[in-house]
Write a protein that binds this DNA or RNA. Structure first.
Lengths: 337, 337
DNA sequence: AATCGCAATGACAACGTCGACATTGCTAAT
DNA sequence: ATTAGCAATGTCGACGTTGTCATTGCGATT
C-alpha cells in the first residue's frame, strides 16, 4: 500500500508537508500543493484512516446496533437516514445486529469499543423502552425509535405515535364517522398503547359514545412469533349487524387483512367501510386498492436526526437527556371517506 | 484509553507478553496468563484494532455496498446474512449505500479503501447485471444478487429465479391447471425474464397450449418510480369469460393486488382462482388470507454464503470467476389448489 | 546593515500493537 | 561438569499518521 512517505518522496517534500496538503492546513505554497497533489494522484494515495485514528483518537466511525433488522422491513429507512447523514458528514457506519440476544449484544459493544468508534446509535426496530446495559455503555449513545428505561439517562429520538394517531382519528371524525372499530397492535409495542390512547382521547373529545367504539386485540405474543387474530377479528367486526363505518388498524399489515375481510364479505372500501392503517409501509399502503389512508412514520428522519444528535454528543455539545419526538403525518389516500 | 502497556505495568510483565496472552500464542506459563488476564479484566482493556491493523495490514472488516437498500425491504435479509457470518467469524461490517448514484458510489469505494477493509460485498437490491467500475475496484469483491456484465470477472452469487419459477409452474400443473394467467415483473429486473422464461418452458413441457397462457405486463419504468398496472390487469384477466383457473404473479406484492381484484369480483381464493406469488416476502405472504403459495428467495443465504466466498477470495483461495447460484424453494400454502 | 517577524518547511517522537530477534534459565543428554 | 536444546519472557523497531518544535529564508522595519 502506498503511504504518505511514498508521496513525499515522489513530490520531493517531507511527509509532514504531504500531511498538511491532505488535511488542507494553511501556510503551504500553491506550488507545493500542486506538486503534492500531482504525486497523490499519480500514486493513487489514499490516507490510512486507522493510522490517523491512532494519533488523533477519533475514528469518525459511528456504530449502529439493531435488534431485529429484518422483521420490520420499513425501519430499514432509519438505517438509510443514518447512512445519508454519515455520507454527508464524512463519517462511516459500522453495522451490527443482535437479534435481541443479550450475549450477542455484549459482543457487539466489545467490537465497537475495539474499533474505538466515536458513538453508537442504538436502534430499536420497534418502538419500545430499552436499557442498553449489555456493554456497560461508555461510548456516547443515542437511542433511536425507543426511549430509556426509568432511571437511565440517554438521549433519545422517537416518533410521536400519539400525535399521529390523534390526528388520524380526527380525520375520521371530520369525515363524519360516529361508530368506529379498532384493531390493536401487539401490546408489547410501545406504539400500540400510545396509538390506542390517542384514539380513545380523540374519540372522547369528539363526543363519540363508549359503546360506539369496538376494540379488538389483533396480535399478541413475543415479537417475531406472535399469534395473529387480525383477519378473524376484522371478519367479526365487519359482520356485526350494526357494524362500524370506519375501521382503524394498528398498522398497515393489519389494514391489509382488514381489506381482505371486507372484500370477502362483499363490502366496498371506502363505500361501505372506511379502513385506515398506520406506518405508511408503502409496499402495502400503495399496493392496496384503493390506496390506504395511513400515518407516515418519520423513520428516515429518525435516523438522520439521531445521527446528528449523536454528533453533538460526541463533540460534547449535546444534552445527555434530550428526548426528541418527531411528528407523524397523516397521509390521506382513497381508503377513507 | 487503556493500552497494552498499562496492562503490562499492572501485571508486572512486558507488553509483548500481554500481546501473547491476548492473541493466545503458545509458550506462556499458566501463571502469567492468569496474572495478565486479571489485569485485563481489572482495567477493562480492549485491544485497539486500528493499531493492530496498521501492523498486520489486515483489518477484519468487510464492506457492504448497497444500491437501494430500502426500496425492496425483504433484501435486508441479505445484510442480515452477512452480519451473522461476520459475527460468527470475528469480522465487522461497514455499510454504505449509494442510492444508485455514480458519484456516491465512487466516494464509498474511496472510503472503503481508506479504511483498508479486506473485501467488499457488492449487493444489488434487485437481481440484475452490474459493473462496479466506479472505484476502479482493487479490493476483493463479490457480487451478491447480481452478476457481472459481459467481460468483467467477479465472483458472484445469485438466486436461481429460473429454477424456482419452473418448480412453481410445475406445482400448478400438478394441481391440474390448464389455463393460466401471468402478470410480469418490471422487465428491467433480471429475475423478471428468468421467471417468465421458466414459466413458459414449464408450461410448454407440460403440454399447455399457447393460447391458454395469458401474459400481461404488471409494471414498467425506472426502478423505484415505475408505473403499476397490476390491479387493472388482474381485474381484466379475472373478468374474462374464459378466465384462467390460476394466476401467477411476478412477486408477492403483485399477488396482493391480484387478491384484491379477485375478491372485488366476488371470486374465492383458491376456490375460484388459484393465485401464487414469488419472493415469499412474509409481511405480505403471511398476511394474505388464505396465505400465499410462493417461492422463497434465499436472501439470507445469499448474504451468508456471499460473505464466505469473499473470505475465500481474501485468503487467496477463492476463484475469481465462481458464479454460485442458490436454489429457490416453492412454499406451498393455501392460495393454490 | 542589522534585526525582527513570520511564512514555509522539515525532523522527530508518539500513538498502540506485534514481528523479529535477543536473553534468560532450566532440563536432558553427553 | 559441560553443553545443547528449548520454553518463557523481554527489547526494540516498524507500521502510517500527525502534533510539537526547530529550522530556513525572505521581506519589512529600524
Amino acid at each position: 500500500m502506498v503511504s504518505i512517505k511514498d508521496v513525499a518522496r515522489v513530490a520531493g517534500v517531507s511527509d509532514k508537508t504531504v500531511s498538511r496538503v491532505v488535511n488542507r492546513e494553511p501556510n503551504v505554497t500553491p506550488d507545493t500543493i500542486e506538486k503534492v497533489q500531482l504525486a497523490i494522484a499519480d500514486l493513487g494515495y489514499i490516507p490510512n484512516l486507522a493510522a490517523r485514528s491512532i494519533r488523533s483518537s477519533r475514528t469518525n466511525i459511528i456504530g449502529i446496533i439493531t435488534d431485529f433488522i429484518s422483521t420490520t422491513p420499513y425501519s430499514g429507512d432509519i438505517v438509510r437516514g443514518v447512512q445519508d447523514w454519515a455520507g454527508a458528514n464524512g463519517r462511516t457506519v459500522l453495522l451490527a445486529n443482535t437479534d435481541g440476544d443479550f450475549d450477542r449484544e455484549a459482543n457487539v459493544w466489545r467490537t465497537f469499543k475495539a474499533h474505538r468508534i466515536d458513538g453508537v446509535l442504538y436502534v430499536a426496530m420497534y418502538h419500545r423502552v430499552v436499557a442498553p446495559t449489555a456493554g456497560e455503555v461508555t461510548i456516547p449513545t443515542v437511542l433511536v425509535n425507543s426511549h430509556p428505561e426509568e432511571g437511565y439517562a440517554y438521549p433519545s429520538i422517537e416518533p410521536d405515535d400519539f400525535g399521529g394517531s390523534y390526528d388520524l382519528t380526527q380525520h375520521l371524525l371530520a369525515l363524519g364517522h360516529r361508530r368506529i372499530g379498532y384493531i390493536r397492535l401487539n401490546p408489547l409495542l410501545l406504539g400500540a398503547n400510545q396509538r390506542l390512547d390517542a384514539f380513545l382521547a380523540a374519540a372522547q373529545a369528539g363526543g363519540i359514545a363508549e359503546n360506539d367504539i369496538i376494540i379488538r386485540l389483533g396480535m399478541e405474543g413475543p415479537i417475531g412469533r406472535e399469534t395473529n387474530y387480525v383477519y378473524r377479528e376484522a371478519l367479526d367486526i365487519l359482520s356485526m349487524p350494526d357494524r362500524p363505518t370506519a375501521l382503524v388498524c394498528g398498522n398497515d399489515e393489519m389494514a391489509l387483512q382488514a381489506y381482505l375481510a371486507a372484500l370477502y364479505l362483499g363490502l366496498r372500501v371506502p363505500g361501505d367501510i372506511t379502513i385506515v392503517g398506520f406506518d405508511d409501509f408503502r409496499t402495502v399502503s400503495l399496493a392496496l386498492k384503493p390506496e390506504l389512508t395511513t400515518v407516515a412514520l418519520p423513520y428516515y428522519d429518525l435516523g438522520w436526526q439521531g445521527a446528528d444528535m449523536l454528533d453533538q454528543l460526541v463533540q460534547g455539545k449535546g444534552s445527555e437527556t434530550e428526548r426528541r419526538v418527531l411528528k407523524c403525518m397523516v397521509v390521506t389516500r382513497q381508503s377513507s371517506a
